[in-house]
């Protein structure tokens, strides 16, 4: 529907049902009062760098995320999790595990010096710029915000689970308490207040770093220039904005 017609219908509807003060209030909401004065969406574009070579699999990010965002601890759901890869030389498939998403760290499972290559890979929502999940949402309850975070509108989500199916990375789940979809929102409540995400804050090695791609002073630009960067499942052209350094070809 063209925006003119929309506006007309909206206005007509308002005149029909609303008294003047209420209409004035809504006017204010619609014209962007939602934006906090200190934070300008247009000046930011968020993403993340994950440096695989630095991840020690301590699980701090997983725990911090659950604490910060009230992610259910008991059922098996994660906004971020860590995988352990174990790739024997010449093996076609890697052995992967993620006990409890890495929540309690990774008890040693492989013998040291078994000749295989082994490493940790933190995963989270890739905040795709062409996200397959927001594309399929039937009602607009999940969307890419102007500053580059993929967000969920919990008060509008139907719980149809189509977006969960559409995410190639397994980053979405249905929160059993609200029966709506949940996923990493890049700690939107933190990054819009000038803080970094809970996972980055508690990462001891700097394996994860929040980046603002629109900020010319952000060290991300040097990092992206100086390293060979990869995103997950590039063949799906999701426009993922979580950039991995040192990502092995076996990582799915």
């Amino acid at each position: 529907m063209s925006s003119d017609r929309r506006d007309f219908v909206l206005t007509a509807g308002k005149l029909l049902v609303l008294t003047a003060p209420a209409a004035a209030y809504l006017e204010a909401v619609e014209t962007g009062k939602a934006e906090e004065p200190a934070y300008k969406m247009a000046e930011h574009y968020w993403g993340m760098i994950v440096d695989v070579d630095k991840c020690i699999g301590c699980g701090n990010c997983v725990r911090a995320c659950k604490t910060e965002n009230d992610v259910p601890v008991e059922p098996y759901f994660f906004r971020t999790w860590v995988e352990r890869y174990h790739v024997a030389e010449g093996a076609e498939h890697p052995d992967v595990d993620s006990p409890d998403g890495g929540y309690s760290g990774f008890p040693e499972k492989y013998a040291a010096g078994d000749g295989a290559k082994s490493f940790f890979v933190p995963k989270l929502c890739n905040q795709c710029a062409h996200s397959p999940c927001t594309q399929v949402c039937p009602v607009g309850a999940t969307f890419e915000s102007p500053d580059g975070a993929v967000l969920v509108d919990k008060s509008y989500c139907l719980g149809c689970r189509y977006c969960v199916q559409a995410c190639p990375y397994g980053c979405r789940f249905i929160d059993p308490r609200t029966k709506t979809v949940d996923k990493c929102n890049l700690c939107y409540h933190r990054i819009t207040k000038g803080l970094t995400t809970a996972c980055c804050e508690s990462c001891p090695t700097g394996a994860r770093q929040l980046v603002d791609l629109k900020d010319p002073k952000d060290p991300v630009h040097d990092f992206l220039r100086d390293h060979k960067i990869q995103v997950l499942k590039p063949q799906l052209a999701t426009g993922a904005k979580v950039y991995y350094n040192g990502l092995d070809g076996s990582v799915r």
Partner: peptide, 23 residues
């Protein structure tokens, strides 16, 4: 019956997302 929030299903008609096959 499958929806987490059946009471919101009218939203499909109110604000259908044109890029969604389901809408």
């Amino acid at each position: 019956l499958h929806l987490g929030h059946p009471e919101r299903s009218l939203e499909m008609y109110l604000t259908p997302h044109t890029s969604s096959a389901m809408a």
